[in-house]
């Protein structure tokens, strides 16, 4: 382990370890993902049947893969609007983070990734097994699955960077609850959480593809399941990298500007 990145690695490992103390919570999340999975499957299967067996390039088998992979990835790719950082900004505790010798954005990223990678164990694997046993999951050939796993890791990074940028707006807004809720709803809709992006009407598809959100969920699902393969899959993953650079840079810029503005009361 090169000493330059050791602090970040330690943060990641500590966050991973902290999650192991909340196993009942992970079980609760698993049951919730499972419940939503069956409800989603019911609607989307009915949609495929009503449309005559095929809709937006999905038949029942590929739709089943979409449903279970999307549910399995939810613990790892967080589409929620977590409030930990927002609370620290609102209460002024963020000043302590700024005083530390580590970059705020990347150290929070390390903590978030610890949580993300942990979720692969108690959340993703059981859901994939349960999905495979109930309505079935199709996977890409091994090379595709490997690329898919890279896409999952990139999606986890991108999901954090997006949430970070929204939370850090609190340096100007103080109370970000409204913005965060809105971000959660719009991002999960355009990421393809409830309805896969290929089912959107054309104008909405174009709108979604002009945002980073499909890279969060639709891309890793498509690559893992083999719906997108070969050069197209590689391009989709590069598109994720592009968004990581853009959204990450936006977060850095906001942090630096906001830091100049930050005033914390108290002694």
């Amino acid at each position: 382990m090169p000493s330059a990145i050791r602090p970040w690695f330690r943060l990641l490992r500590a966050s991973f370890a902290a999650q192991t103390r909340y196993l009942p919570a992970a079980l609760g999340g698993l049951i919730a993902n499972l419940t939503f999975g069956f409800l989603k499957a019911a609607v989307l299967f009915a949609t495929v049947r009503a449309a005559g067996g095929e809709v937006g390039g999905y038949d029942l088998a590929t739709m089943s893969s979409y449903v279970w992979l999307s549910q399995a990835l939810l613990g790892t790719v967080n589409l929620g609007a977590d409030s930990d950082l927002a609370d620290r900004v609102r209460t002024g505790d963020i000043a302590i983070d700024f005083a530390r010798p580590l970059d705020v954005q990347t150290s929070y990223l390390a903590v978030d990734l610890g949580r993300s990678f942990f979720a692969l164990g108690p959340r993703a694997i059981p859901l994939i097994l349960l999905g495979a046993l109930t309505t079935g999951i199709a996977f890409a050939p091994p090379a595709g699955v490997l690329l898919g796993l890279v896409a999952v890791a990139l999606a986890a990074v991108l999901s954090f960077l997006g949430r970070y940028a929204v939370n850090i707006l609190g340096l100007w807004l103080v109370e970000t609850r409204g913005v965060r809720t809105l971000y959660m709803l719009v991002s999960s809709f355009l990421a393809g959480l409830f309805v896969p992006v290929p089912l959107f009407p054309d104008w909405l598809k174009m709108l979604a593809n002009a945002t980073p959100f499909p890279s969060l969920l639709q891309t890793p699902i498509d690559v893992l399941s083999g719906k997108v393969s070969g050069a197209a899959a590689l391009l989709a993953v590069l598109w994720q990298v592009f968004w990581i650079v853009v959204v990450g840079a936006a977060g850095q810029l906001l942090t630096r500007r906001g830091r100049l503005k930050l005033e914390v009361q108290g002694g």
Binding site: V43, L44, A46, T47, A50, A51, V55, G56, G178, V179, T181, L182, L185, V186, F189, F194, V195, L199, F200, P201, L204
Partner: peptide, 24 residues
């Protein structure tokens, strides 16, 4: 405004489903 948009986004999801299947 946020809460109102939240309701509209949910309705949008349903609308997209019914855009693909007329009767469910």
């Amino acid at each position: 405004v946020g809460a109102m948009l939240a309701g509209l986004v949910q309705l949008g999801e349903i609308w997209v489903v019914f855009h693909n299947a007329k009767v469910l």
